[in-house]
């Protein structure tokens, strides 16, 4: 719990370094003082973390998915540890959009990092309505469209079919001028086809990836280890898959990418940026170390300083594939 004196929000200058590193990035018009944000559903509504870290150090804030009506969530057990990660089926427990606007937004608005609100609908019309309502609020910098939550019954998954994904983003596009960031599911054969569809529908950036559908069995009781039977796998276990998808999409679509999946350290974040991500999100790591995002930010700065990089943007998509390798 080592807290710096609150140099609220000002980019941390490095006294040792003669030329301070510029960590700022711009994701579809959302100006971030560093590329590190929080992954939806792993950071609550930020207030849960205020006693553990200086929230104003974050590049941007992404909060837990909001739906039209409040949702109680799934029956327990909702989570279980898996190798190098965890399996969850929370079931989008949330207070609903009106509850969010009333109870959570006033606090979030007072924080400095740009706020990205994540929404999920059960239909194309839901997405349109949610986007409109959130877009009309003051203090919202962008909207992440969760078209990919694997944990809710009733066909909430709009991101395994390019046409459905297109329709959702199109409807949201018509409802708001704010930056729109669809968050895609890795549970598909061809991620590029989905990414192209949402780009064509007017997306401003793409978040990659949501959790991978998984399952764990208790062999003593022969029961599934989580109440929902299947859930989403997150954590370092999924990182290679996430990096691969970021790389594939970055080459195919000209939109900024927010990369996530198992980021614990700055080195993990760098993998994503070199593969093509403009920004990154820290997810499951927040649970095991509520200061994880700050450590990632500090590590990024150290890496840049050590490698003579003055602008973190130089790293984006800087992957070098040796000549003669057949991709």
């Amino acid at each position: 719990m080592s807290q710096e004196p609150r140099a609220a929000g000002s980019p941390t200058p490095n006294p040792q370094s003669p030329t301070p590193v510029d960590l700022s990035v711009n994701v579809a018009g959302i100006r971030m003082k560093n590329p590190v944000m929080t992954a939806s559903g792993t950071f609550g509504y930020a207030q849960e973390f205020e006693q553990y870290m200086d929230l104003n150090r974050l590049g941007a804030l992404v909060v837990k998915t909001i739906t039209r009506l409040p949702r109680p969530g799934n029956p327990p057990p909702r989570i279980v540890e898996t190798p190098a990660g965890m399996l969850n089926a929370i079931g989008l427990q949330n207070v609903g959009i009106e509850g969010f606007i009333r109870e959570k937004l006033p606090y979030l608005r007072r924080l400095q990092p740009p706020l990205i609100v994540n929404v999920a609908g059960e239909s194309v019309e839901d997405f349109r309505e949610l986007t409109k309502r959130i877009g009309d609020q003051e203090g919202v910098a962008g909207i992440e469209l969760n078209v990919s939550c694997p944990n809710v019954a009733g066909g909430l998954d709009f991101s395994t079919d390019p046409q459905l994904a297109y329709r959702v983003v199109k409807a949201a596009r018509e409802a708001t001028p704010l930056p729109l960031i669809p968050k895609l599911s890795p549970n598909v054969t061809d991620i590029v086809a989905i990414a192209r569809a949402v780009a064509e529908a007017g997306a401003d950036a793409i978040s990659l990836i949501n959790t991978l559908v998984g399952m764990a069995v208790d062999v003593r009781t022969r029961r599934p280890r989580i109440g929902n039977v299947t859930g989403g796998v997150s954590g370092p276990a999924i990182r290679p898959i996430a990096v691969r998808m970021v790389w594939q999409v970055a080459r195919a679509v000209r939109l900024p990418i927010i990369g996530m999946g198992g980021i614990l350290t700055a080195e993990d974040a760098l993998e994503f940026m070199i593969a093509g991500a403009t920004a990154v999100a820290v997810g499951t790591a927040n649970f095991i170390d509520p200061e994880a995002p700050v450590r990632v930010i500090e590590g990024l700065e150290q890496y840049c300083t050590a490698n003579g990089i003055q602008d973190v943007r130089q790293l984006i998509g800087s992957l070098e594939i040796p000549l003669g390798i057949d991709e």
Binding site: G41, E48, P77, N286
Partner: peptide
């Protein structure tokens, strides 16, 4: 007791069902 990931209200993983209208945790 419940399975926990964070311990401070961030993951919503440690739900216990309580009495109320419909399902509530």
């Amino acid at each position: 007791e419940a399975n926990m990931a964070c311990g401070f209200g961030a993951c919503m993983g440690c739900a216990v069902e309580v009495k109320g209208d419909g399902k509530s945790y």
